[in-house]
């Protein structure tokens, strides 16, 4: 008998049972607890026509589902157009700025000047230029999507290990090839974190634009329901908006994991 057989490999230890509060369930529990608190507050403490119970909101979610579906379809299609436009411009601009110190010096002051402009501030002048329709709203969404992507892409390009670039040059790779095979993949994780910031922003900005210049979409729906004294329907829209934001972020994370399977942060 060898030593090996004597010390039988122990069966893999049973997965340790994690206490409830350390598991994922705790996040869901917190949401549920807050919903219960909301419902109780609407029933017993807050006496206001604009604070409905959770059950009323859930009922409005079902009874208004056709309206909500139409509103969300319009909002998300608008958001995606603006987001894609802003993201493409942001990636292109970010790479250019990341690669060229000259462009970086030339554009940084302008970008830093434009970046903090709040959306409600740029909508009225944009109405004069682009009207009140989709062109104006898509521009606003693209504007706010652009900056996080640009800044992250530029950062990503600059973070490429210079040794790798030198090595590529030693092997006589063309500039285009090292850009495509080195710089872009290395910048991709940064671009993705920019995209995730932008996606959340894009949803917010689309809704704000619809609230200011309305007619369609969830932003207009929220305003109309507020003015029609139907807060249950308004909050149904808000709840769905939160769920949409969550889902969009999750989808982007999924895409990120697919595309960046080789990359592990930290």
């Amino acid at each position: 008998m060898t030593a090996q057989t004597m010390t039988e490999p122990a069966p893999p230890p049973a997965k340790p049972r994690r206490p409830l509060l350390q598991s994922r369930v705790s996040g869901v529990l917190l949401v549920l607890a807050l919903l219960v608190l909301w419902d109780l507050s609407a029933r017993f403490w807050v006496d206001s026509t604009s604070w409905p119970t959770v059950t009323a909101v859930l009922a409005a979610l079902f009874s208004g589902s056709a309206d909500l579906f139409a509103a969300f379809t319009s909002t998300i299609s608008l958001m995606l157009k603006g987001f894609v436009l802003g993201a493409l411009l942001g990636v292109a601009g970010g790479i250019a700025i990341g690669l060229s110190p000259f462009l970086r010096r030339a554009f940084t002051p302008l970008l830093e000047f434009l970046r903090p402009l709040p959306v409600p501030g740029i909508v009225p002048p944009l109405i004069l230029l682009l009207g009140i329709d989709d062109a104006m709203k898509i521009t606003v969404v693209a504007f706010s999507t652009f900056f996080p992507v640009l800044i992250n892409a530029a950062q990503g390009v600059r973070m490429v290990d210079p040794v790798l670039i030198d090595m590529a040059r030693t092997f006589r790779h063309s500039r285009l090839r090292s850009m495509w095979q080195l710089t872009l993949p290395a910048a991709l994780p940064y671009v993705f974190s920019g995209l995730r910031i932008s996606l959340a922003l894009a949803l917010i900005v689309t809704v704000v634009a619809e609230m200011i210049a309305g007619g369609t979409g969830i932003g207009y729906y929220l305003m109309t329901m507020q003015y029609a004294m139907q807060p249950d329907r308004m909050y149904a829209g808000v709840v769905l908006l939160a769920a949409t934001g969550y889902a969009l972020n999750w989808l982007l994370l999924l895409a990120e994991r697919r595309l960046l399977h080789w990359y592990s942060p930290g």
Binding site: L128, G131, Y220, T224
Partner: peptide
């Protein structure tokens, strides 16, 4: 074609710009 705005803030800028 109506373009409703709940607050009414953009109606006159839109008129001035010829959008409506």
């Amino acid at each position: 074609d109506t373009t409703p705005t709940a607050g009414g803030a953009v109606g006159l800028p839109a008129l001035a710009s010829g959008a409506v």
